[in-house]
Design a protein around this nucleic acid. Structure first.
Length: 574
RNA sequence: CGGGGCGUAGCGCAGCCUGGUAGCGCGCAUGCUUUGGGAGCAUGAUGUCGCAGGUUCAAAUCCUGCCGCCCCGACCA
């Protein structure tokens, strides 16, 4: 393409409301523009990148045996009521009404529609397994969209759904997707890692998130420094500590202490002169309307995902003051396990604690020298807290470390949740109806592009990996008013296009500096500079965006040289 | 939804406190010069000051309501 004819509005100034590097650069490089909160237009340069990511996704999905379909974005409420998600999905679901006042939603995901399609068309085990995918625009009415297209409301997503005859076969489908995802993100030039993830409300089954390393990432993950265990922080397991024999002789007598207006762990710790490790926090949660007291050591944090899974509830929130009053007979800040009027569960961190401090269930009072067994009993112990640097790998016991990342893909074993709710069955060999076993697999297309920029940029702009770069090469004639320069540039341009190279000819009547800066900003991997300096000797300059290295190449050889470099960058080394 | 901030030219902002001709930088247009890392000079165009009310002789400025956007928090297959 000729730059002068392209719609490519680059900007010098950094938009004030763009926080992350990728958001700033996508705006400055003329890739995207915001229409309204969380909703973006893709300009030609941005859309070229999107299409390249999509293409890689298609190639790898097809290679893994999946078939592409295209489903409706607007979906009838009936289907969602059938699966139970019309009520459950909440405000993120954008609901619409048509002229007849019938209810619809704009699809945030397509389990219902796909499963409806499959249940109507598939009758027998002979037609299974099936893996169907689509790439299309979805809408989730996010509470707070941010970071440009990283977390937006309207976004492009690849979603695949697998249908299998049984668990065993479903695992094969899952693994195929897992492998396909590794190939996809590798081809996109990303540094990433699959991590075990919380399976959320679906429960029982398992899932992996594909996380792209980025300090600006919204998700935290931990990984073992020696084995290959890696997990989302919500999921990261903590082993049950070994229980030391109980020696009741060390138990000190219970004592109630007056602690006026002392509520938080810090306040209690300061007031009583004990470390937070000697205090037990009692948190009252409401789990699907039912109050539950959760005990945890003072210096640890509750992991609500673990708690939710343990309790098997849909809704979990810290209890309101009136509930606290009801179960503890005291205001917030003085809850304790002794005499509390609800079920008590405890984190493993309590297992070997003796003579600890608790709330007294009485305003302005705490109790010291409390001991489990003697003073109260616990219904269940479980792993309910957030993992920390002090913890060890739950698999091998080695030290662990932490990183932040961007979730670009998620593979999920669904089991029969949707097939059951929607009666998606097939006839097995014995002529019996059986539920299909499902999996679902998502990739955020725009987010993948943005994550790529987070990882590939420098002070001058984006540094695209060749496979998803909007163009492979940009030719920069230093002065378009110079006949020789322009003619040579044009010849190189045509020769590269003839080779199938995606090339921009920057034929604008701009100063060289302007063109260099724009070329760097939009991040084209190779730049061919045509200027008097080298042309008098019959040479042009080839510059590599990533390294900044420069090669002087004779005009007659530049085509072959650049073609080889582009193919190398695309991974087509032959 | 709670807390905070912002809305003035295409973009970034000043002006508002203390009411009286709407400004600056970048960008844009034209011309001359310049031409290997965001050129110089000259000339020029561009505003319902987010919207609606109110106060006032007079409102970008003060008051009220609404809308939009951003940030923090809560929330999130």
């Amino acid at each position: 393409m000729r730059y002068s004819e392209m719609f490519l509005p680059t900007t010098r100034e950094i938009p004030s409301d763009a926080e992350t590097v990728s958001h700033q650069l996508m705006l400055r490089a003329g890739m995207i523009r915001k229409l309204t909160s969380g909703i973006y237009s893709y300009l030609p340069l941005g859309y070229r990148v999107i299409k390249k990511v999509e293409r890689i996704v298609r190639e790898e999905m097809n290679r893994a045996g999946a078939e592409e379909v295209f489903l409706p974005a607007v979906q009838p409420s009936e289907l969602w009521k059938e699966s139970g998600r019309w009520d459950f999905y909440g405000k993120e679901l954008l609901r619409l009404k048509d002229r007849h006042n019938r209810e619809y939603c704009f699809g945030p995901t397509h389990e219902e529609v796909m499963t409806d399609l499959v249940r109507n068309e598939i009758q027998t085990y002979r037609q299974l397994p099936k893996n169907l995918y689509q790439i299309q625009t979805k809408f989730r009415d996010e509470i707070r969209p941010r970071f440009g297209i990283m977390r937006c409301r309207e976004f492009g997503m690849k979603d695949a759904y697998s249908y299998d005859v049984d668990e065993e076969s479903a695992i094969v489908s899952y693994q195929k997707m897992f492998e396909a995802y590794k190939r996809i993100f590798s081809r996109c030039g990303l540094r990433f890692r699959p991590v075990e993830a919380d399976s959320g409300n679906i429960g029982g089954s398992y899932s992996h998130e594909f996380m792209v390393y980025a300090d600006s990432g919204e998700d935290a993950m931990m990984f073992c420094t020696s084995c290959d265990y890696a997990a989302n922080l919500e999921k990261a397991e903590i082993s049950e500590p070994e229980k030391a024999p109980v020696d009741e002789s060390v138990f000190l007598p219970l004592e109630e202490v007056h602690t006026p207006d002392v509520r938080t762990i810090e306040e209690v710790s300061g007031f009583l002169g004990v470390t937070p490790q000697c205090i037990v926090k009692t948190l009252i949660f409401t789990a699907d309307e039912r109050p539950v007291a959760v005990l945890i050591r003072g210096d640890e944090e509750i992991n609500e995902a673990k708690l939710r899974n343990f309790l098997g509830c849909d809704n979990l929130e810290l209890a309101m003051d009136d509930i606290i009053k009801e179960v503890t007979d005291s205001p917030r800040g003085f809850a304790g396990p002794i005499g509390i009027k609800c079920e008590i569960i405890a984190d493993y961190s309590l297992i070997n604690m003796n003579n600890f401090v608790i709330g007294a269930n009485k305003e302005d009072h705490h109790i010291i020298n409390c001991n489990i067994g003697r003073d109260f009993s616990v219904a269940n112990f479980s792993d309910l807290r957030m993992i920390t640097e002090k913890d060890r790998c739950p698999r091998c016991g080695s030290p662990i470390s932490f990183a932040r990342g961007i979730e670009v893909g998620h593979v999920f074993k669904l089991g029969t949740k949707y097939s059951k709710a929607m009666n998606a069955t097939y006839l097995d060999r014995d002529g019996k109806d059986k539920l299909m076993v499902m999996g679902c697999y998502g990739i955020g297309i725009g987010r993948t592009s943005a994550a790529c920029i987070e990882q590939n940029n420098d002070k001058d702009g984006i540094v695209w990996p060749m496979p998803i770069a909007p163009f492979h090469v940009i030719i920069t004639p230093v002065n378009v008013k110079d006949e020789d320069i322009l003619k040579t540039s044009d010849e190189i341009y045509r020769s590269l296009e003839a080779e199938g190279i995606e090339v921009v000819l920057d034929d604008r009547d701009e100063r060289a500096g302007v063109k260099f800066i724009d070329a760097d900003l939009i991040g084209i991997p190779l730049r061919i500079t045509v200027g008097k300096k080298n042309l008098v000797d019959g040479n042009v300059e080839v510059r590599f965006r990533r390294s900044g290295e420069v090669e002087i190449v004779p005009v007659e050889e530049v085509r072959d040289y650049v073609v080889a470099k582009v193919r190398e960058g695309l991974g087509e080394t032959d």
